[in-house]
């Protein structure tokens, strides 16, 4: 854990966190599908303690700008690594497996499940407890897709990994729609 602070100093000696700097190495971690979120948060706070512009508020503009860039980079890395979907997409990009723009999911079973979940969302209409149940189910799906991604990524089966990401994306989007519906119903 002491690596975080040292790590930052090493980085300030180099020009700055370049755009190419690996998000995992910023936190002193090796690329992995599984991230301990509590540990990540601790590392994140330690890093911000070192690089945040508030630490350089009384210094020259140049230091401030540098701090600003570094803190923004740390925030970007943190936001990416703490989200399962963004993390998975990032891992794929690191592996040189950028998503082709026009891919469609061809897994019939998955499409059926997806249609079924959407129908349930439509049917749930204005019933909060039905929405809650649906949300619980969708969260389970998200966990499953995360698991399949992790397995595929480990074995470097990129097609399977990309399929898992597609599914994860579908499920995540659905969960956001459920949240919107819930908030609408709660009038907040």
């Amino acid at each position: 854990m002491a690596t975080s602070a040292e790590h930052v100093i090493a980085c300030t000696l180099k020009p700055a966190f370049g755009e190419q700097q690996d998000y995992f190495s910023i936190f002193g971690l090796v690329p992995s599908c599984v991230v301990d979120l509590d540990d990540l948060r601790v590392r994140y706070r330690q890093l911000q303690q070192a690089v945040h512009p508030d630490r350089f508020a009384h210094e020259c503009d140049r230091s401030q700008r540098l701090a600003q860039q570094q803190a923004a980079q740390v925030n970007a890395a943190y936001n990416t690594l703490k989200s399962p979907l963004l993390r998975a997409q990032y891992l794929m990009a690191c592996a040189g497996q950028e998503r082709a723009a026009e891919r469609t999911v061809q897994d019939a079973g998955f499409l059926m499940t997806q249609i079924e979940l959407r129908e349930r969302l439509d049917e749930a209409a204005n019933d909060l407890s039905t929405l809650d149940q649906l949300m619980a189910d969708v969260r389970k799906k998200i966990a499953q897709h995360q698991q399949s991604f992790a397995e595929a990524w480990q074995k470097q089966e990129w097609l399977a990994a990309q399929n898992a990401i597609d599914k994860l994306q579908f499920a995540t989007k659905l969960s956001l729609e459920i949240e919107d519906r819930q908030e609408h119903l709660l009038d907040i």
């Binding site: 600003q68 923004a72 925030n75």
Partner: peptide, 8 residues
């Protein structure tokens, strides 16, 4: 609710 500073 994105933490600042941020660049995107």
């Amino acid at each position: 609710n994105t933490t600042i500073p941020v660049a995107k």
